[in-house]
Design a protein around this nucleic acid. Structure first.
Length: 116
RNA sequence: CAAGCAAGCUGGACAGCCGCGCGCGCAGGUCGAAAGGCCGCUGCGUGAGGAAAGUCCGGGCUCCACAGGGCAAGGAUAACGGGUAACACCCGCCGGGGGCGACCCCAGGAAAAGUGCAACAGAAAUAGACUACCCCGCCGGACUUGUGCCGACGAGGAAAAGGUGGAAAGGCGAGGUAAGAGCUCACCCAAUGGCGUGUCAAGCGCCCAUUGCUGUAAACUCUAUCCGGAGCAACGCCGUGGGAACACAACAGGCCGGCCCGGCCGUGUUCAGGAGGCGGCUGGAGCGCGUUGGCAACAGCGUGCCUAGAUAGAUGGCUGUCUUAAAUGACAGAACCCGGCUUACAGGCUUACUUGCACC
RNA sequence: AGCGGAUUAGUGUAAUGGUAGCACACCAGACUCUGACUCUGUUUGUGAGGGUUCGAAUCCUUCAUCCGCUG
């Protein structure tokens, strides 16, 4: 099994914000852009407005876990940036997962058999 | 039993499946001449806190400056004795304040070296005469015609009474005086010196002496002690492209290419710079237990243990059981490392003590 | 992560330790047939807690919030 590839450079984030497709609800915001490669890459943004270091770490871990467990349902070859909003701090894992899948469906990220 | 006070501990545990960082191992794969790198594994071990936080003090460590001493400037600390690598920390003790008490709080040196400030109020704010008091002079009034009484004015005496204010000239009583005043005396208070005591201490005591002086130093200042600056994004090593200086050279050499032909490039050394990478990086003023010294903080000795090291940043997700009133968490995430302080914190446990009530 | 700075009415900005001002804004009134302009007046404040002082916006201290520099 492949490890989750992550985005680290600032210019990749900027490209996703400026040129990518967007979907958002109260908890999360998703930015997606084709990267021309075989694999998907994940970028996470949790700003200091959301909470203190413990809260931000918890959200980041949950989002990483959601992405890991749902990675095989996604189409490949995209950069995905997930931005946590303030209400994500008071949401549990299941609420975050539902938001993520709904937004991914909106952006036509899910494979056909993944939607079912 | 109730209320309180102080110190210390704890900050869920276990199991299953999936997943992560680091170290070790591997008969695995791949690259490499090798060293080793990268990937992998039903593998093994290990993996956040009491505050990891705020960055308020003190150090270690690294570089820079000075390389010896002193002065000035700037800053810090402040009863006294001890502890410590050091401290604005800790312990003991003294003084002051609070509480019935256990106990808690205090930047707590010098205002009697000097300067500044003290609004408003008040007559007066570091020195003073507004009212009231007393003596003298002079004028007026009443009558019981007194070297007496009342009232106005002038010149003095006097800090005793009054109200203001945070603060009013040591306090109270007696003597004294025209009226008064530490002017004198007894007692008390404060400061300084002496004696005794205390750790040759702060301090406490004295039927010893002298003096009687507002507050403010978290105003300037004085006294004593201490302090060079910057910080792991420090610093060291490797080092792409491009740059500068010097030397050599127009031959040779290097690259592409199986070779010739052909095409492209000046070469070497040094320096600055610093994309990126590696080190710095965790074994330390370390922790536990016992013992000795000490009231204690702490120190010595013995013995056992090794306990994160990431680099966009590892502890998460799902489920079950147990303790529980509650575990979908209280506060909260190491980032070079220590010693403190401060701030945040649901609850739970232990020990000592105080007060009140009841019973023996 | 390290380092530095700031906080005064709704907004901008003053104030040697001694009643916290000024301008604009808001509100009310006057002027006007009505509105604007103009004039007059009122309200609204020292980020929070503790300390020093007779008395703190100011001095000291502990926090909170915001901003900036170093990649």
């Amino acid at each position: 099994m492949k490890r989750t590839a992550s985005m680290k450079e600032n210019h990749l984030f900027r490209r996703a914000y400026n040129r990518g497709k967007t979907a958002a609800d109260g908890r999360l915001a998703l930015y997606v852009r084709r990267n021309g490669q075989k694999n998907n890459r994940l970028g996470l943004t949790v700003s200091t407005k959301v909470g203190c270091a413990v809260v931000r770490n918890r959200i980041r871990r949950r989002l990483r876990e959601i992405y890991r467990l749902n990675e095989d349902k996604l189409v490949s070859g995209a950069d995905v940036v997930v931005v946590a909003r303030v209400r994500a701090a008071s949401s549990d894992y299941h609420q975050l997962e539902r938001s993520f899948l709904k937004l991914a469906d909106k952006l036509e990220l899910l494979k056909k058999e993944g939607i079912k």
